[in-house]
């Protein structure tokens, strides 16, 4: 190795180490603040305490918003998995014009500003007379979750050997059995990763949800931003630490099931 190359390699690793520290900074700060006793986010905290966690139980609106978010995220992910998988099969197997256009269209909500999508939906729903907050949220969130499913499942399906299904049928499976025993297990990792990212995207969505919430039905990010703006104290850090823990657990599970590397192959 020449000296130029050695220098470049060292520089790359230095930047990467810096990137790791940079990326983890907000998470570590949040966790540290949540266990501190100071209400003004002094770091390092003079003493440690769990009082912000005790406050969680008496924080108004937190539990209902968490429940709403979990319901909407789970249901919208399920709907997206169903519609998205059917559509992906058509995109990979079907011979028809406009493949490219359709897949671009289905993934496009990821690339367009969420606020603009939210406003467009708000105005359209109002014109049609859709009123229910919860139903509007669900309908809107499927648009957010669908791109994740289509993108990943199309990728997995294009690597799948469809003659395996014919082989299963030759061996005596019915068509549905063949799908269930051959196709579904082959797609399981794709379902898992896309489902996870779709679920998280829905849980985290602010710009679309903000147009479909009212005083009674709020999602967690909306409720949290309201706390941050009204009374910023480490209670928010305590909620956040809970969410970070949830993310760590999810990733740990995903790593056991499909491997972290696979998650990085967006």
């Amino acid at each position: 190795m020449t000296r130029t190359e050695q220098g470049a390699v060292i520089a790359v690793w230095l930047v990467a180490a810096g990137a790791v520290a940079f990326l983890l900074t907000p998470l570590i700060v949040t966790i540290a603040v949540s266990f501190g006793s100071s209400a003004v986010f002094t770091l390092p905290s003079p003493e440690w305490s769990l009082k912000w966690y005790a406050r969680l139980a008496v924080t108004k609106g937190l539990a209902p918003s968490l429940v709403t978010s979990l319901q909407i995220a789970a249901l919208s992910t399920l709907v997206a998995l169903l519609l998205g998988t059917l559509c992906s099969i058509a995109l990979v197997r079907g011979r028809f014009p406009g493949h490219e256009a359709i897949s671009t269209f289905l993934v496009s909500p990821l690339m367009l500003p969420g606020l603009v999508i939210g406003i467009a939906m708000l105005q359209a729903f109002r014109d049609v007379g859709v009123r229910g907050t919860w139903a509007s949220l669900l309908v809107a969130h499927v648009v957010i979750t669908m791109p994740y499913v289509v993108r990943t499942v199309v990728g997995a399906l294009s690597l799948f050997d469809f003659s395996l299904i014919d082989a299963a049928r030759t061996l005596g499976c019915s068509y549905v059995q063949a799908l269930r025993k051959v196709l579904v297990p082959a797609l399981a990792p794709a379902f898992l990763t896309s489902g996870m990212f779709a679920f998280l995207a829905s849980m985290d969505n602010y710009p679309i949800s903000i147009f479909f919430t009212d005083a009674w039905t709020k999602t967690l990010p909306i409720q949290m931003l309201q706390y941050v703006e009204e009374s910023p104290d480490p209670t928010i850090a305590a909620i956040s630490t809970g969410l970070i823990l949830l993310a760590v657990l999810t990733l740990f599970l995903a790593d056991r099931l499909v491997g972290l590397r696979r998650l990085a192959e967006l």
């Binding site: 790791v20 998470l27 949040t30 972290l260 998650l263």
Partner: peptide, 28 residues
């Protein structure tokens, strides 16, 4: 590789409100 992957994917799965709030604390 595990450290790098975790540092990249973990923040991706934590909400933007959480991270922006943490940067408020860091940047004061």
């Amino acid at each position: 590789q595990v450290v790098l992957l975790a540092a990249i994917i973990l923040p991706l799965s934590v909400g933007v409100v959480v991270k922006a709030f943490a940067w408020q604390i860091v940047l004061r």
